[in-house]
Computed example of a mutant assay.
Amino acid sequence: MYLVFGALLGTLGGLFGIGGGLIAIPLLGVLFGLDQQIAQGTALVMVVPNVMLALWRYHQRNRIERQHALPLAIMGFCFAWLGSIWAVGIDARTMRIGFVAFLIALSAYNFVRMFASRTTAASQMNYSWPWLGVLGAASGTMGGLFGVGGAVVATPVLTSLFGTSQVVAQGLSLALALPSTGVTLLTYAVHHQVNWGIGLPLAVGGLMSISWGVKVAHALPERLLRGLFCGFLVFCAVTLAFKV
């Protein structure tokens, strides 16, 4: 069952460039009754290898520029560590309420963007360093706190403010997510907030399917991909709200 569950999450993770953790966390809490921090730590066992493979697949299809990825990754790593230390000391119910609020805010932002005037992706990024570092710090903090790698924060900001296409934004977000999810998983594991018996088969299932999700992402129209991403966030928020 965990393998099948992991395969489904891996497909979604490849499709949206987020590693699958965002939907794994509410479902682990609702279906398996895990506390919020343990759900986040367990999801990260699957997310880290998924992000690694998805990042490679995105880079193969649409080259990720090193000068853009490095400031995101370095700042994301540092601030994800701080966010994860903060997360393990928070009450589980308070953390769950905060996570739902985070998803609702993110859903609302993406929903507004769906109806905003459409802008053409720029051939060159609108901003570079130090603004990419600022984005990496903010996304890393949220990723460390909520165990989602920061990609869900960085992707809409990269498309709306930095002028990238959706697939380029998702690739850069994965570059940000890889080091931040790694250090976040380590912090959660040290504080015994990981269920390895669930996390490892989820990871195997995810690795079996994430490449297919990346392939689908590159085949879909830009607007449809953004719409699916927005609906995905709303679904996660509603699912977890029933557990609060």
Rank of each mutant, 00 (worst) to 15 (best):
R63M: 04
L174F: 04
G6Q: 11
F77G: 03
L53S: 12
L176G: 01
L185Q: 06
G197S: 14
A137K: 11
G231A: 11
W56T: 09
G149M: 07
I85Y: 07
L172H: 12
G197W: 13
A137W: 08
A175F: 05
H218K: 05
L225M: 04
A138Q: 05
S180I: 06
I210F: 01
T42E: 10
G144I: 07
R57W: 00
A217R: 11
I210P: 01
I64D: 01
W56I: 14
F229K: 06
W212S: 09
L186F: 13
P221M: 06
G83F: 03
L200C: 11
T155D: 00
Q37G: 01
S173E: 01
G13A: 01
A121K: 08
G89A: 08
T239N: 10
Q40T: 04
I210T: 15
F102M: 12
L220N: 07
L31S: 04
R61E: 09
H191T: 13
A105L: 15
P130I: 12
M46D: 06
A101I: 14
I38N: 02
S160N: 09
E65Y: 07
N62M: 07
H191G: 06
P201S: 09
S128C: 07
A151P: 05
S209G: 08
V238S: 04
V167Y: 01
Q193E: 12
V157C: 02
F146T: 10
T187I: 10
M95V: 09
V204G: 05
T119K: 15
G163A: 11
F102K: 07
P221H: 13
T159V: 14
W81Q: 04
D35R: 13
S160G: 00
G10N: 01
L186Q: 10
L220H: 03
Y58L: 01
H192G: 06
H218W: 10
S165Y: 07
S84N: 09
L176R: 03
L172A: 08
L178Q: 03
F111N: 02
V190C: 00
V45R: 04
A87D: 10
A154G: 02
P179M: 10
Q37Y: 00
L15W: 02
V167I: 09
G199K: 10
F235A: 12
A80Y: 09
M95P: 02
R226Q: 15
F99K: 08
G17H: 00
T42V: 08
V183N: 03
G6A: 12
Q166T: 14
G199Y: 13
T159Q: 06
L28S: 04
L176A: 02
A87K: 06
A24N: 00
G213M: 07
G76T: 09
L224P: 01
N195K: 07
M1F: 10
Q40V: 04
